[in-house]
């Protein structure tokens, strides 16, 4: 059935409720809500959440914003925790301890800290073991929950509280890790990079595929943080659009190893359009720092080209 935003929103009740305590304008709640809307209404979900903004704001005793079953244990082990729940499902289903005609899906949410960094081992293990689950990283590019410290997802040159733009060192000096490709290296049936853009079609369709593909699947979703990135809260959607139109955050999916770039901008915008509105990159626009923008652009260009090459290569091989 073709995607119809209004029908999806009107007919599929939100499974991530209002009354949570994420910051005003946070990018994560709309993403979380839309991913969960990709669940079939009749299906139950067990959701695991790594410690992070989403977790500490959505289940503050005694209030939970999740209408499905939900578990949080610690920062680095959402994937391992969920793998245990999934194993229990397999065992109990096999033994007839659960109703035969009902389906439970398993979804983990972690920020970039809990996914790229401290939770990478747990994620890698769970994916390799082949549990039937979807892991969603909502990537806001730093440890926002503890006050904007750099992570391995933090873009190069960004000013964070542990990679401050100083007189000698101008922000984070290392390029960001490419997590989606690390996941592709696990030979998963489905890996995608997406974002909330326009009418959320890209996000919804990829979520649906990820959740309803058998086996371990992975979604990487860019999720802006007005506080950490330093832009006015109302600019969530324009920022997302710039991330995509500059090819800073390419939208693609990898199905059984075959790459499909799901959006190619007709005219790729210079990356400084994405950088300029954000305070974390402000120092890059000072006179004498033009080289930083050039370097950043080079990195975006080479990664974009690499993606196009991979698409061509893997489709040819098919």
């Amino acid at each position: 059935m073709p995607y119809n935003l209004k029908e999806v929103v009107a007919n599929k009740p939100s499974r991530f409720t209002e009354g949570h305590r994420m910051c005003a304008g946070c990018g994560a709640p709309p993403v979380t809500r839309m991913i969960l809307r990709a669940l079939k209404e009749e299906d139950h979900a067990v959701i695991a959440n790594a410690t992070g903004c989403l977790e500490v704001s959505s289940f503050i005793y005694p209030y939970t914003a999740w209408t499905d079953s939900y578990i949080h244990t610690a920062f680095e082990c959402a994937a391992a925790t969920l793998s245990g729940a999934e194993a229990a499902y397999q065992a109990m289903k096999r033994q007839g301890k659960l109703p035969k005609d009902k389906t439970t899906k398993f979804i983990a949410f972690g920020g970039d800290g809990g996914t790229y960094d401290i939770g990478l081992q747990s994620l890698s293990g769970a994916m390799e073991r082949g549990h039937d689950m979807t892991y969603v990283c909502y990537d806001n590019g730093a440890y926002m929950n503890t006050g904007i410290q750099r992570s391995s997802a933090t873009p190069r040159f960004a000013d964070t509280t542990t990679s401050p733009a100083g007189k000698v060192i101008p922000g984070k000096m290392q390029p960001r890790k490419d997590l989606a490709k690390i996941m592709v290296g696990h030979h998963l049936p489905y890996v995608a990079q997406t974002i909330a853009i326009n009418n959320f079609k890209d996000l919804y369709e990829k979520s649906e595929k990820a959740i309803y593909t058998d086996g371990p699947t992975f979604l990487n979703v860019l999720s802006p943080c007005p506080r950490g990135w330093g832009y006015p809260t109302e600019d969530l959607m324009p920022i997302n659009k710039l991330a995509v139109e500059t090819c800073y955050w390419p939208l693609y999916e990898v199905v059984d190893g075959v790459y499909h770039v799901t959006y190619k901008p007709a005219k790729k915008l210079p990356v400084e359009e994405f950088l300029r509105p954000q305070k974390r990159f402000r120092h890059m626009f000072k006179p004498g720092n033009e080289w930083m923008i050039e370097e950043f652009q080079k990195e975006v260009d080479s990664r974009w080209q690499e993606l196009l090459d991979l698409e061509e290569m893997t489709n040819k091989a098919e």
Partner: peptide, 9 residues
């Protein structure tokens, strides 16, 4: 589940 609705923001 979902009782955060009781918490008005």
């Amino acid at each position: 589940a979902g009782n955060a609705r009781d918490f008005k923001t």
